[in-house]
Design a protein around this nucleic acid. Structure first.
Lengths: 334, 334
DNA sequence: TTGAAAGCGCTAACAT
DNA sequence: ATGTTAGCGCTTTCAA
């Protein structure tokens, strides 16, 4: 194994000079720096992670806990996770993966063992059991999603309330008087995951402000469930012509069902671009900014590690992308 | 921070006794062991990961590289990843996540820095550039998926060739004479990912053995693409009545299209249970054993770390689960 | 069955 | 601007 001593010997300097040249924590003269870097490259030196963490009390690892609760749309979780991993590397950090089934012990363990020096929690619930632990450990932490009472805890999420309002506005602008929000499954609403409720609240209040008649139905992802949900909405409110859908599984089937509809119908989805583009016609949508959420979470974590924390909720403003599914006479083929 | 010295002091023993009591590498008398464990619990001791890795040359971390290539079905990747993470914990190991964009350097880096002591590569291609690096680094490694020439490299995957054959057999048993395999997108076949080609080969040769007329079409996941693919098959071979589908995105749309079909049609899918069950009717299928693949990959890695390696390909035998989509007169509602 | 102590490779405080 | 060196907390060899 190549050690810092090998590098020092080859560069004709002391080990501390090598250390400082690499960390930049001390000014090193140009020529010396150069010789060190050459030696590093020639020998293919990589500092030993364990030794570094022991000496510096920093592991350069961020733990990410992914509980993967049922009803979540996995590709988005994965995209956020990958965005975090890539973003972390730009800070010289790596990502350690924790599952939900280790529970709160997982966070405790990586904190106490110095395996990680910050934690990111995904899929946080309104009253998440992991959050009190975080405060108790006093470890830098970031939540992806909003708990009921963020307090000092750094959180990041799409502003789903604004997203719901944006959808209501869009449908109102198109002239629809009766609108409906087709949401996620009942179990997700019940599990006290904030985003579904926030979207609903934003959608309903903006619809009311705009003078629309609005309704709402939860929906499983299955084809049969979409059929039933749609039938029920059209049965109860036959004049419904504007649809917002926040359910990745339901978007495709819903679009296909509405294509056979003779009336002027608009659909706007809150979903990843990939889903909106996979429908036929491509759906107008408020995209889930997975990349931005991942990068943002790491930025918030790094800020805490460098002593300049941003506390409380960071809400990403929603954007509306108009495609072919909305326009007063739609959906239809492009 | 609680150190091993604190534990030793409280238990009234030496630090080495604590170390041995915890690692089990030396026989410790019952009473002593007990006192140590009590002290550990009382103090909430967690060994410092960096110190341990420095002293023992083992990080207890397995690096998993997830390139996330386009066309892959993300939920399966995620399920394998989570299964690995859970399985790793049963060996006292953690999972470090690497993305594809760090390329081969990522593996080199974690190996050289002692950050991880084994690597798992997901989404391996037939001629994967990461594989030569592995041999050169002589680091324990496992591939999920089969490269063209496994050699000594430990690999694990579903036996897709057998899965394809199983589908052909099933359709033949049901009495279909003209069968078609609807596969993944053209780009995936071209990118030299083995599983698609292996399924195809298994399907076609078994179909031939059984005296069936068989055809094959790649397909994107989009609704429009499914429509076009199906139309083309039925145009070229109007008597086609048995369908195998290896494309998670296409299974739902395909099923819906075939429901309107008056003829006796059967569908069997190679896909995760979640997809098969989300269709209407639920599809007969050969499930992707994501959990088994994840657990198996970790088992193979641990075997190498403990000096009892299994080299070469480990192929998981496929199972056929018969549901409502196949039976000579299907698909129809249950 | 247990203890003492020498490192593992690095960082950072203290020197020069 | 650079060098010297004392640990960081643990594992493991050598002794008893």
């Amino acid at each position: 194994m190549v050690t810092i001593a090998d590098v020092a010997a080859r560069a004709g300097v002391s080990t501390s000079t090598v250390s400082y040249a690499l960390s930049g924590k001390r000014r090193i003269s140009g020529p010396t720096r150069e010789r060190v870097m050459r030696a590093v490259a020639d020998l293919g030196y990589h500092p030993h992670a364990g030794a570094r963490s022991l000496a510096s009390n920093r592991s350069n690892v961020i733990a990410v806990m992914v509980p993967l609760r049922p009803g979540m749309y996995v590709p988005v979780i994965m995209e956020i996770l990958m965005a975090m991993t890539t973003a972390a590397r730009t800070y010289g950090e790596d990502i350690l993966l924790l599952t939900g089934d280790e529970g709160t012990d997982g966070v405790r363990r990586v904190a106490a063992s110095g395996l990680a020096d910050a934690a990111v929690l995904m899929d946080v619930e309104l009253h998440d059991e992991r959050i009190p632990i975080l405060r108790e450990l006093a470890m830098p932490a970031v939540a992806v999603g909003l708990p009921a009472e963020p307090g000092e805890l750094a959180c990041i999420d799409l502003d789903f309330e604004a997203a719901g309002a944006l959808c209501a506005d869009h449908l109102a602008d198109l002239g629809h008087d009766d609108v409906a929000l087709i949401g996620v499954s009942h179990s997700v609403y019940r599990r006290y995951i904030g985003f579904a409720a926030r979207t609903l609240s934003g959608f309903l209040s903006r619809a009311r402000e705009r003078g629309l008649r609005a309704t709402h139905r939860p929906c499983d992802g299955t084809f049969d469930s979409v059929v039933a949900t749609l039938a029920r909405i059209l049965d109860e409110r036959p004049r419904t012509s504007g649809f917002a859908v926040q359910n990745e599984e339901a978007a495709g089937p819903l679009t296909n069902l509405l294509r056979h509809c003779e009336r002027d119908v608009s659909v706007v989805a809150i979903c990843p671009d990939q889903v909106a583009l996979g429908c036929s016609p491509p759906l107008s949508s408020v995209p889930i900014p997975a990349d931005e959420m991942g990068r943002g979470a790491i930025r918030l974590a790094m800020a805490q590690l460098s002593g300049h924390p941003t506390t409380g909720a960071t809400l990403i403003p929603p954007r509306l992308v108009v495609r072919n599914s909305s326009g007063g006479r739609a959906p239809r083929r492009s």
